[in-house]
Amino acid sequence: MIKYCLPFALGTLLLQGCVTSTVDEMVFNEPVEGIGDATVVILGRRHASDYETEPDFIECVGDHISSRDKTITVVDEIEFVNSLYPWFEPRTAPLHPADIERLLEQEPVAERMRELKTEYMIWIDGVTVRSDSAGSMTCGIGPGGAGCFGFGTWSNDSNYEAVIWDFTDRAEVGRVNTTASGQSYMPAVVVPIPIIAPVQGTACDGIGDQLLEFLSSEY
């Protein structure tokens, strides 16, 4: 089994493009003993007109945190937004920690929050965009078979910022910013060989690690 897996794993590693990543962090009031049985919710900002934070990126950061520290419960974004409809829609979502106070004046909302035991609310704003595409590729099909020939390259750039709100103190307690960029290539001689730079995945790991350091007592 290992004899088949090892070349595949090596091949996968070799066929990944390079990514450059930077992470900036600024946090206050870190919970030194972890968050106990409280929960964390990670939400994407979606009120900009020209982009929206990808739901799969939010899921990736949540999985990154909960898989590395099993004691941290990350509430699913869709489940949270649906259970508090209509207060976390792009139109109505709180933009500042002070808005939470106004939201909790509604008894059903306050009760649902108590049920969910949400201690930290993390808002992630940003997007991964593709830029600088170049090259061309031609594919054809005939009686003898099919194939492609050419070369394509493109770069991806990620820029995300996570803002941490302390739900109990109704205050912002941290900000983590990550940028990542990488170049992907796709040479094709009969078969296209994608060499993809995992830009969004690197940004996810970068922001996830910093959030984990803030939330977890083990890191």
Binding site: S83, Q106, P108
Partner: peptide, 9 residues
């Protein structure tokens, strides 16, 4: 789509 019930008095 699934539309959730509103959480309000």
């Amino acid at each position: 789509g699934n539309f959730p019930a509103p959480l309000m008095e």
